[in-house]
Design a protein around this nucleic acid. Structure first.
Length: 556
RNA sequence: GUCCCAGUAGCUCAGUAGGAUAGAGCAACAGCCUUCUAAGCUGUGGGUCGGGCGUUCGAAUCGCUCCUGGGACACCA
C-alpha cells in the first residue's frame, strides 16, 4: 500500500476508535468512515462528515457529536497536527505533511509500478471493444471506442484486474454477403461492364480498391466463372484484406488485442443451436408466424425478439447470444462491452438473453461510447457512411497526429457527445492540452539534462524532507493521489480521469517551475531534493500518458 | 409514440458512492522572458447547474414531472 493510503487508513481507524470510545455508535451501527479532501485549504487536508452521519444514530446534534469525537481522537498516532470543527459539523484535520515527502522516494523506487493496486483483486475481466464489421475500414466512431476500450483495459490492469482484450469479428451473416456483392459490382465496373450498385451496398473507396486489385491480379477471370464461385472468392478476398487492414490500423493506433474471435467459429461448433435449445428449455422461446421468438420482455425488453427467421436463418442476435454465453463459459467474472451509440437499443435484449440463460444480470456491463462530431476551421465536418465519405480513423490520425487523437478521444467522458476540434488538436500552443502535458514531461527531461551538464549528480541521495514550499507540497499531494485516481477510474470505468489528472499534474509542475529554481549550484542539498521530486513527476506523467496510449517526448 | 444519452461560465467540458463559498481550459482583460524551453507562469471579471416539485441537517449529484438537443427503436447487421 502506498504512503498516502496508509496515512488515510490510519486516520480512519482513529476516527472509528474515537466514535466507539465516545459511545456514539456500536460496531454494528457504524457507518463507513468517509474521508474527503476539502476544496478549501482553510478546511484542512482531510475532512470527515461522520458527525452528520451519526446524528440519527446517536440522537444528538452534529456539532456536539463532532466535539465528542474530537475529544477522543488520539492525534499522536496519525500525523495529525490540528483538528477543527466547522460548518454544520465537519471535522477538519490538518496534517503534519512531512509524511508526504516519502511519496517521492516511493515513486522513484517503484518507477512504473507506482499507482498499482490490488483493488480489482485479480478479478477476471474481459473487455470486448471496436468489433467493427470487416466490411470497411475503421472510422471516427471506432477510433473513440478503441481509445476508450484500450485505456480502460490499461487502467483496470493497473488497478489489479486481470484483463483480456477481445475483438469480435462479424465474419458471418448477411453483411458479408453484401460485401461480396459490393465487390462484385465494383469488379464488373473495373472490367468495363455498366452495372448498378446493389441496394444498401458498401460504397466506400476501399471496396473499389479491393475490386481493382482483383481485376489487376486476375483480369477477366471472374467474369466467366459461376456466380457462386465468384462471390465466394470475393467474400474471402474482401474479408481477408479488410480484416488485415483493421488489424494494421489498430496496431498503429497502439491498441493491442489478446483475442480475435470469429463469429463463423460459432457456426462451425454448433453452439448457436445449443443456446437456442437452452433458452427453450428455460421457457423463454416460442414459435409464431413461422419464426422462433425469444421472450425478452420477461426481462424488461420492449418487445420479444426473433431468434430464427421464417427462412430458417438466424438473426444477428442469436449468434451474439451464443457468443456471450461462450465468453461466460470461458470463466470471466465480468464482461464489459464497448458499443457505439447506434447499438444502444440493443442493450436490453442482450442483457435479457444473459439472464434467460441463467447468468447473473450484473456479469455484463455495456459501455456506450457517444457520437463524435469533427470540427475544422470552425465548421462541422459532414460525413455520410452510405456515400462512403466517412472520415476514417487513418485520415484523422494523418491530420491531427496519433497522440492528439488518442488524448482527445479519452479526455471526455464516454457517454457525452464529443466535439473534436481539429484546429485545437493540431495547434502547438498552450491551448492544446496534449502539448501542455507533453511539454511538462519534456521540460523535466531538459532540466535533468542541464543538471548533468552542470555536473550535478542526478542520482545522488536526496533529503526529501527539504521539500516544504507551497508548490512542492502541491506536487507531493498530487503525486500521492495517483493510485487512488487509477483505482477510481477503473472502478467507475471512467478512464477520462487519467488525462484530467495528468493535466493537473502538468499544471502543478509548470507552476512549480516558474516559482522555484530546481538547479541551484549554490544549494546542492535543495537541488538534489528537487531533482528527486521532478524525477518522480516525470515517472507519473510518463505512466499516465502510457495508460492512454500517448507518448511522452523527451524534447519538444 | 417508447427507450437510451446529454443539458453546468460566451465556447468546450470536469464535477456521477449527496457535503462547506460549483471548478478547469479556451475566449476577454491586466501583468511576467539578461534567469533550468514563454509550447510556460501570475492575477481579474464571468453562473437561475434547462424549468418545476419532492426526498433530508444538506442536492449539479437521488426520485417524479415537463422542456430542449442527439441517438436508437426490423424476421438488417
Amino acid at each position: 500500500m502506498n504512503i498516502v493510503a496508509e496515512v488515510e487508513q490510519q486516520l480512519k481507524n482513529e476516527i472509528e476508535a474515537a466514535i466507539l470510545k465516545a459511545e456514539l455508535a456500536s460496531k454494528e451501527e457504524m457507518p463507513e468512515i468517509i474521508l474527503e479532501t476539502p476544496k478549501e485549504k482553510e478546511h484542512g487536508d482531510y475532512a470527515t462528515n461522520m458527525a452528520m452521519q451519526l446524528a440519527r444514530i446517536a440522537k444528538k446534534a452534529p456539532k456536539q457529536i463532532a466535539e465528542e469525537i474530537v475529544e477522543q481522537i488520539d492525534t499522536g498516532q496519525a500525523s495529525v497536527k490540528k483538528i477543527d470543527i466547522a460548518g454544520p459539523g465537519f471535522i477538519n484535520f490538518f496534517m503534519d505533511q512531512s509524511f508526504l515527502t516519502k511519496v517521492v522516494t516511493e515513486i522513484n523506487e517503484a518507477k512504473s509500478q507506482y499507482g498499482k493496486s490490488d483493488h480489482g483483486a485479480g478479478k477476471k475481466v474481459q473487455i470486448e471493444f471496436v468489433s467493427a464489421n470487416p466490411t470497411g475500414t475503421l472510422h471516427l466512431g471506432h477510433a473513440r471506442g478503441a481509445a476508450y476500450g484500450d485505456a480502460l483495459a490499461n487502467v483496470m490492469e493497473k488497478a489489479g484486474y486481470e484483463v483480456d482484450r477481445e475483438y469480435y469479428i462479424n465474419d458471418a451473416g448477411n453483411q458479408i454477403n453484401l460485401l461480396a456483392k459490393s465487390i462484385e459490382a465494383r469488379y464488373f465496373q473495373a472490367v468495363g461492364h455498366d452495372v448498378e450498385m446493389p441496394e444498401d451496398s458498401y460504397r466506400g473507396k476501399d471496396i473499389i480498391e479491393l475490386a481493382n486489385d482483383l481485376y489487376k491480379e486476375h483480369g477477366n477471370h471472374y467474369v466467366d466463372v459461376t456466380e457462386e464461385e465468384r462471390l465466394e472468392a470475393f467474400r474471402q478476398h474482401g474479408l481477408d484484406h479488410l480484416l488485415e487492414r483493421i488489424k494494421k490500423d489498430l496496431e498503429e493506433y497502439r491498441v493491442p488485442f489478446d483475442t480475435w474471435f470469429s463469429e463463423t467459429s460459432l457456426y462451425e461448433t454448433g453452439v448457436i443451436g445449443t443456446v437456442v435449445d437452452q433458452l427453450r428449455e428455460n421457457g423463454y422461446v416460442y414459435e409464431q408466424d413461422g419464426a422462433t421468438w425469444f421472450k425478452s420482455t420477461d426481462f424488461g425488453d420492449d418487445k420479444d425478439r426473433v431468434l430464427v427467421k421464417q427462412d430458417g436463418t438466424y438473426t444477428y442476435l442469436t449468434p451474439d447470444i451464443a457468443y456471450h454465453q461462450n465468453k461466460i463459459d470461458r470463466g470471466f467474472d465480468e464482461l464489459i462491452n464497448v458499443w457505439g451509440a447506434d447499438h444502444h437499443g440493443y442493450v436490453n435484449r442482450m442483457k435479457a438473453a444473459i439472464q434467460a440463460l441463467g447468468n447473473p444480470k450484473d456479469i455484463l456491463d455495456i459501455k456506450i461510447v457517444q457520437i463524435v462530431h469533427l470540427y475544422q476551421d470552425g465548421e462541422k465536418v459532414k460525413m455520410s457512411k452510405r456515400t462512403g465519405k466517412a472520415v476514417t480513423m487513418q485520415e484523422l490520425i494523418d491530420e491531427v497526429g496519433l497522440d492528439a487523437t488518442r488524448y482527445f478521444f479519452i479526455m471526455r467522458s464516454n457517454d457525452s457527445h464529443l466535439d473534436f476540434d481539429m484546429d485545437l488538436a493540431t495547434s502547438e500552443s498552450n491551448e492544446n492540452p496534449v502539448y501542455y502535458v507533453q511539454y511538462a514531461h519534456a521540460r523535466i527531461c531538459s532540466m535533468l539534462k542541464q543538471a548533468e551538464e552542470k555536473g550535478v549528480d542526478v542520482n545522488a541521495e536526496a533529503d526529501v524532507s527539504l521539500l516544504t514550499s507551497e508548490k512542492e507540497i502541491d506536487l507531493l499531494k498530487r503525486l500521492g493521489d495517483y493510485p487512488q485516481v487509477i483505482a477510481e477510474a477503473a472502478n467507475k470505468k471512467m478512464p477520462h480521469r487519467i488525462p484530467q489528472y495528468v493535466f493537473e499534474l502538468a499544471g502543478d509542475l509548470h507552476s512549480f517551475y516558474n516559482a522555484e529554481k530546481v538547479i541551484d549550484l549554490e544549494n546542492a542539498e535543495q537541488t538534489h531534493a528537487r531533482i528527486a521530486l521532478i524525477k518522480a513527476v516525470r515517472i507519473v506523467i510518463q505512466d499516465a500518458l502510457n495508460l492512454i496510449g500517448v507518448h511522452a517526448p523527451e524534447q519538444m
